[in-house]
């Protein structure tokens, strides 16, 4: 058992707990915050495994960009932006967590910046060489996979959109209020598409 065991076990445990939290959280905000904790834990795991670049990408792209995007979306939900009165316990725990984070950063700076390994396995050059060398075919094939994901997400969202000839109100009434709120922007977007492609009809 080497000295990386405890950090790995800790990061794995928190990652598992936060992943379960994403699924079980009743409010979307809690799910997104749990997702943030999860992605930071995964970044820590990458860091322990000496894949610095991947860890950095995980923090920048997942924790930084994607989770914040989720938070914006949650804030735009009908009741997502409304915050109840903040209890004192939450303020205290936030202050403790912030202080702990500061202490950890200060301790890290006091120890000194870690020296880069001589020949990093997960460095930019190594990753670039494998992505555009032996792994070029799978790398390019991810394009098709991402295309499917985009088409799928848009198609499932557009699924409940009223058809041009149908009455929006009757369809929405049969599918409940959630569909109704989702329909409103969809209908206008679809109408705009139809107007642009007008002569084709």
């Amino acid at each position: 058992m080497n000295n990386a065991f405890l950090p790995i076990a800790l990061a794995c445990a928190v990652a598992l707990v936060s992943a379960v939290g994403v699924i079980l959280a009743r409010r979307p905000v809690h799910a997104v915050v749990a997702l943030l904790a999860h992605s930071l834990c995964v970044a820590a795991l990458f860091l322990i495994m000496a894949a610095d670049l991947v860890a950095l990408g995980q923090v920048l792209i997942y924790s930084g960009a994607i989770v914040v995007l989720f938070l914006f979306v949650v804030a735009l939900l009908p009741h997502g932006g409304i915050e109840s009165v903040v209890p004192t316990g939450r303020v205290v725990s936030a202050v403790v967590a912030g202080a702990a984070l500061l202490a950890a950063l200060a301790a890290g700076l006091a120890v000194g910046a870690p020296t880069a390994p001589e020949n990093p396995a997960g460095g930019v050059e190594a990753i670039g060489r494998s992505l555009f060398g032996p792994l070029i075919v799978p790398f390019e094939l991810t394009a098709a996979l991402l295309l499917v994901a985009i088409i799928g997400a848009v198609a499932i969202w557009r699924r409940q959109e009223p058809e041009p000839g149908a009455k929006a109100s009757s369809r929405a009434a049969s599918e409940g209020s959630l569909a109704h709120t989702a329909d409103a922007p969809g209908a206008t977007g679809r109408q705009r598409l139809l107007d642009e492609g007008g002569p084709a009809r």
Binding site: L147, V148, I151, A155, Q160, E161
Partner: peptide, 17 residues
């Protein structure tokens, strides 16, 4: 289809599948 204007998406998904 649930929404019959989605035939192009279905065709695209068949090709990608």
């Amino acid at each position: 289809l649930h929404n019959s204007t989605q035939r192009p998406e279905v065709a695209a998904l068949i090709l990608l599948g």
